[in-house]
């Protein structure tokens, strides 16, 4: 059921990004910034990875792969390959297909995507893109600021604390998925994804997640078509 149009959709999107999403993203990007500093790379590199790659799985592959150029980039791309199906799934909700939809391009990442997939179908079409951009810009700025803070505060953060902070991101995603379990299509995809997760342990880290997602998602899709 469509909700009444918020009078300032961009502002209400921005406000929605400032609660749990900002904390979950903030702490994981903080941990990433500190890890970059520990690896001896610069602040510019840390910010570039957070703002331009903007997907934690790929960022961690880039950081851990070492200075191997194209090979590291290939691994990071495989780890973040979910951006393609995510962009495909969200595009119809970003308003009519046209130039304005492309404004969303750099911000398609898990946190804005998951929030938007929950919110946009309930908003009037004209409010959807502004809401997404409001949410996405705040998330993106939080990611950048947290990365810089983590980089600068690295000497103050000990390894056990950083390890705990890295857990905030998966926990936040687990909560988002729990909220989706009531929808049959989502339930199938989530259960199939968990069932396919062991596949990732058999493959190189960068490719494992892609393989598990493709296998689990395709299985869930076919299962839904049959039912």
């Amino acid at each position: 059921m469509p909700q009444p149009a918020p009078s300032h959709p961009a502002r209400s999107g921005a406000a929605a990004a400032l609660g749990a999403p900002a904390i979950a993203m903030g702490v994981s990007f903080l941990a990433f910034g500190a890890a970059v500093a520990a690896a001896g790379l610069g602040l510019a590199w840390a910010l570039g990875a957070s703002l331009l790659v903007y997907g934690m799985a790929g960022q961690l592959v880039l950081l851990q792969a070492g200075p191997s150029g194209a090979a590291a980039a290939l691994g990071a791309t495989a780890a973040n390959a979910r951006f393609l199906p995510m962009a495909l799934a969200i595009a119809p909700w970003l308003g009519p297909s046209g130039a304005r939809r492309w404004l969303a391009l750099p911000f398609i990442a898990i946190t804005p995507w998951a929030a938007a997939m929950r919110m946009l179908p309930g908003l009037p079409p004209a409010a959807r893109l502004p809401w997404f951009l409001g949410f996405a810009l705040v998330s993106w700025m939080v990611a950048g600021l947290a990365t810089a803070a983590g980089f600068l505060a690295a000497p103050l953060l000990d390894a056990p604390l950083l390890a705990a902070l890295l857990f905030a991101n998966p926990l936040y995603f687990a909560l988002l998925l729990a909220a989706e379990l009531r929808l049959p299509a989502s339930r199938r995809a989530i259960l199939a994804g968990i069932a396919a997760a062991p596949l990732a342990l058999l493959l190189p880290p960068a490719w494992g997640l892609l393989a598990a997602g493709l296998a689990g998602g395709t299985l869930a899709f076919l299962w839904g078509r049959r039912g």
């Binding site: 997939m117 998925l177 199939a192 994804g193 342990l201 892609l210 689990g216 299985l219």
Partner: peptide, 19 residues
């Protein structure tokens, strides 16, 4: 679009399970 959404969600679920 439905397939892409299923793949995205399954990837996320696998990510959480592995983490």
């Amino acid at each position: 679009v439905a397939w892409a959404a299923a793949v995205s969600q399954a990837t996320l679920a696998a990510f959480v399970a592995l983490a």
